[in-house]
Design a protein around this nucleic acid. Sequence first.
DNA 1: CACCACGTATGATGCAAGTCATACCTAATT
DNA 2: AATTAGGTATGACTTGCATCATACGTGGTG
Lengths: 101, 101
Amino acid sequence: MGDHLDLGAALTALANDLRRGIIAELARLPADAEQERACGSFDLPVTKATKTHHFRVLREAGLITQRDHGNGSAITLRRAEIERDLPGLLGLLRAAPRQAR
Amino acid sequence: MGDHLDLGAALTALANDLRRGIIAELARLPADAEQERACGSFDLPVTKATKTHHFRVLREAGLITQRDHGNGSAITLRRAEIERDLPGLLGLLRAAPRQAR
DNA sequence: CACCACGTATGATGCAAGTCATACCTAATT
DNA sequence: AATTAGGTATGACTTGCATCATACGTGGTG
């Protein structure tokens, strides 16, 4: 089994409102912008332990990569891989209305 | 709020392998074919009570309609509504490799 | 160096979800 | 009318998931 993305894992990850919001935010970044974004810059109504959990789920689904700075860390959307294996998924998330939190 | 499909509900419904398989089968039907399909014609490795449960989840997510015959019942994919509110979703499911069961 | 901010690891908890057994309903068949 | 087959309703059980508290690690900053 290669490194191709699994639809089931992706949909399971994106079924959660918070995780879907994270990916939608990244997907809405302009294509010419800096793609990496600090984990702390996401305003999520949960404790940091729970944030860690959600980023892990997204990482294990292959939707993001995460870079560690010791303190601080940042994530990047795996745009190319997602478009290759799950074409249309990002467009779907981008088009969806922003979540009311 | 109207009858427009909710992305979260749709992804939650489709995160399950069995339910995703059902929708994928329907999505792969040729566009000119009979769209309705008997519930019993789906070969799912669960009891009929569990089948009822899964069809209900799909119905409540707005992905299918269900017609009752007293005995027997059949479901139809809500193609138009899905394409209108969640464009690209069916293509994603159609393209995905068939599930190993 | 002490401190603080950001993140991770682990364990506990509460709730949602998938599954089944059982009982029941409806329509077709014998 | 009794039987059978496809679905549904309900309740129980089990597993998974989201969340938090707590403790710990890492690296800037005063």
